[in-house]
Amino acid sequence: MRVTLSVNGKPATIDVEPRRTLADALREDLGLTGTHLGCEHGVCGACTVMLDGLPVRACLVLAVQAEGASLLTVEGLAGEDGALHPLQQSFTEHHALQCGFCTPGMLISALDLLNRIPNPTRAEIRSEMSGNICRCTGYNSITDAILAAARSLTQKD
């Protein structure tokens, strides 16, 4: 089936089987391998992307369901000039990644968190990020990174 959608501001058309997940369509059909797949059934959060401005698990959406949708993946976070998004910058500064496998999903979930709660407490970050699993870093540095990004983002406005 043909699906027309927009990914990181650019129009895209793909031709997929109905069973193709949005995550696989991004990776295999559009070559955007920044979206990672851990569990493929909704529990690890690695595949989290924004669909029409709201976070979704890309492994729990069919590509054919994204007809007409507007997506933001980790590849779309940095600016046109390649400047890192404040969250990405903060993740590197606070050692919030080791292998980086969970990081794309962490960043998109963190973006959603800051959209809803611009000035979160540590406790809020811990509970809001509980749907994203990291197997190496430990969650303290990830929490530090999100707190620092929240500060820099709210100071800017």
Binding site: T21, H41, C59, L60, V61, L62, V64, Q65
Partner: peptide
Amino acid sequence: IIAGGQSLMPLLALRLARPSLLVD
């Protein structure tokens, strides 16, 4: 039927459900 897919998609991925048709 597929609605939010947040319970059905995991069942499909694990092949615990194998419907012939999904009605969105």
